[in-house]
């Protein structure tokens, strides 16, 4: 087996190693992004529904 894809006969070990790394990293990125968008849009909706409380919450922050 020649070339990069062949990995000198070790393709069955090298490519899965990169594959599993990519899957885990992308999985972390996607779940983190999705969770963040979900929470931030939920928070925005709640603030919109309760504008008075929003002002109070903001006070508590600074």
């Amino acid at each position: 087996m020649d070339g990069v894809l062949g990995m000198g006969g070790y393709a069955a070990y090298v490519w899965p190693a990169y594959g599993i790394t990519a899957v885990v990293m992308l999985g972390l990125l996607i779940t983190s992004l999705r969770e963040m968008r979900k929470n931030e849009s939920q928070l925005a909706a709640l603030k919109q529904a309760h504008p008075r409380r929003r002002a109070r919450a903001e006070e508590g922050q600074s």
């Binding site: 990125l29 983190s32 992004l33 969770e35 963040m36 928070l43 919450a57």
Partner: peptide, 20 residues
């Protein structure tokens, strides 16, 4: 990068809990 996204997410969740 991930830490920023996740902390933002966690902070939003905390605020949601507080409002609820």
């Amino acid at each position: 990068t991930l830490l920023i996204l996740r902390v933002r997410s966690e902070l939003a969740a905390t605020k949601i809990r507080a409002i609820r």
